[in-house]
């Protein structure tokens, strides 16, 4: 079954819209509901839409990295965000450091943002790996049954 023309045309727009929304949710998580996990899921839902419209290969080329690599990068980033704590006086791992940038408005930046970004990437990678696996399995099965008949 081929996706309809409307779906194929609107998919890229919806993808960028959902990626933008996911970034908003990611940053909002600083002090309000949101954060890396939710943001990652929103981004993954956009990518899933893209995969339905353009096929799993479309998502693969879009991501450049293999989904597993993306997850690994995310987890590594999250783990690294705890390391600067060791520089502190009696810093325990994951004690987050803060830096309030005065750029007209006060921009609360900290290692916690790095952690959230890591979670975001990890969730996107995992979700994409799962749904690409299921989509490809479905395509292979469809091909197998067509070949059998």
């Amino acid at each position: 079954m081929r996706p309809s023309l409307i779906l194929r045309t609107s998919a890229p727009m919806l993808l960028w819209l959902s990626l933008l929304a996911s970034l908003y949710v990611l940053v909002r998580g600083h002090n309000e509901p949101g954060g890396g996990f939710l943001g990652g899921l929103v981004a993954a839902s956009g990518l899933l839409f893209h995969a339905i419209a353009r096929g799993p290969e479309g998502v693969r080329t879009l991501l450049v990295l293999h989904p597993v690599q993306l997850s690994a990068l995310g987890v590594l980033l999250a783990a690294t965000s705890g390391l600067p704590a060791f520089l502190g006086p009696d810093g325990a791992y994951l004690t987050h450091l803060w830096w309030f940038a005065e750029l007209g408005v006060t921009l609360p930046l900290g290692t916690a943002l790095l952690f959230d970004l890591g979670v975001y990437l990890a969730v996107v990678g995992m979700a994409v790996a799962i749904f690409i696996g299921l989509l490809e399995w479905k395509a292979a099965r469809a091909a197998a049954t067509e070949g059998g008949e």
């Binding site: 293999h66 597993v68 690599q69 997850s71 690994a72 990068l73 987890v75 590594l76 783990a79 705890g82 060791f86 009696d90 810093g91 325990a92 791992y93």
Partner: peptide, 25 residues
């Protein structure tokens, strides 16, 4: 000391992530 305490978690975590980054090699 605190770094040493967290190390048994960080070392396998970093190893797993780095190995995954070299996916397919």
């Amino acid at each position: 000391m605190q770094a040493l305490l967290a190390a048994p978690l960080l070392v396998p975590l970093a190893t797993a992530c780095l190995a995954a980054l070299f996916w397919g090699r």
